[in-house]
Design a protein around this nucleic acid. Structure first.
Length: 110
DNA sequence: GTGTTGACAATCA
DNA sequence: CTGATTGCCAACA
């Protein structure tokens, strides 16, 4: 059942993308949080989905658990954060990270 | 079937 | 706070 397996992968991806699309402006979620929220897979699987099909959603709202930004897209994400008012934290060297303590979204239900 | 890699995470030094 | 190590899950050669 290779077709079924592919269908499952697409379904998982669809769920992840749906969750990401549900994240309100000014908030973020970590890969592990999304995996935990879905109750399946893991942070890496979420990361894979984002890498493949994340281009159609607010990928900048999905970051690492420690609040670090995506490698290679820091400038883009930073612009989004400043525009949406996402709580940021400067490290002094130009290293900006999201303040997970405040920006972390609890989900549709809180 | 085995080993390596990866948009990760938690823990330890 | 930074860096290194281990654990996890799935894809890929």
């Amino acid at each position: 059942m290779t077709a079924a397996r592919r269908a499952e992968a697409t379904e998982f991806a669809d769920r992840v993308l749906d969750v990401v699309d549900t994240i309100p402006p000014g908030r973020v979620l970590s890969y592990g949080d999304i995996a935990e929220y879905l109750g399946q897979g893991g942070p890496r699987q979420v990361g894979r989905v984002m890498a493949l099909w994340g281009g159609g959603v607010a990928w900048w709202r999905v970051i690492h658990a420690d609040g670090s930004l995506l490698a290679g897209h820091e400038r883009e994400a930073l612009a989004r954060y400043q525009r949406e008012g996402t709580p940021l934290r400067a490290a002094g060297d130009g290293q900006f990270r999201v303040d997970m303590r405040r920006a972390r979204w609890a989900g549709p239900v809180s």
